[in-house]
Amino acid sequence: MFDYNFHWRPVMKSLPDLLEAASLTLQVAVLAMVLGIVIGLCLALARLHLRGPVYWFATAWVELARNTPALFQLFFFGFGLGAFGLHLSPYLIVLAGLSFNCAGYLAENFRGGFKAVPETQIRASRSLGMTPWQAYSRVVIPQVFRIVYHPITNQMVWAVLMSSLGMLVGFRELSGETQFFASRTFRIFEYFAVTAVIYYVIVKVILLSSRLMAARLFRY
């Protein structure tokens, strides 16, 4: 049936390079998530509590991030900003694109989380003598965190999967590195099969560690 000889040796020889590229993938995904969580939080709060231009800016960000392809967003940070003479390195393109995207999606999750905590709780804690900061940090945030914990995990998985788009803007993370090796040796199937396995393992490790952490965090 197969008229094709699989050659796995070149892949095994470049496995260390691939694993190093995988760590770059993880690094950019984690950074993008950190930025995404911070920006997403700001966007969610802006959409909940503010009016006027800031509200519209946050809304435009969220809707653009959610309603256009991630690849389009990467192209925008790549070619689009190039039109204004701002040339980002491939690393920055991917980081900016992913952060933009994650912030948009997370903002909606955070907004839902904040809305799920009844306002009466804030009033109750305020009348118990808590400062607004105490009310937020001790009553609201712990509940919101519980609600958005799983969406954040999912978004982290998406960030890892989306970072593979770096391949199309010349970033040598796991996918880009794989394409580089594959086009040098013409062992395209073998290389991408190994890369698929690496991605699968990364995703499973993220999900497993998230579950273990949840078991510890939400014991009560």
């Binding site: 008229d3 996918s175 698929a196």
Partner: peptide, 23 residues
């Protein structure tokens, strides 16, 4: 689950190059 845990772009490249192997 595999299709949800591997980037779509990798799936596309893999299948595109795997199909000729299958004839």
């Amino acid at each position: 689950d595999v299709f949800r845990s591997v980037p779509l772009i990798i799936q596309l490249v893999l299948f595109y190059n795997f199909a000729p192997i299958m004839g």
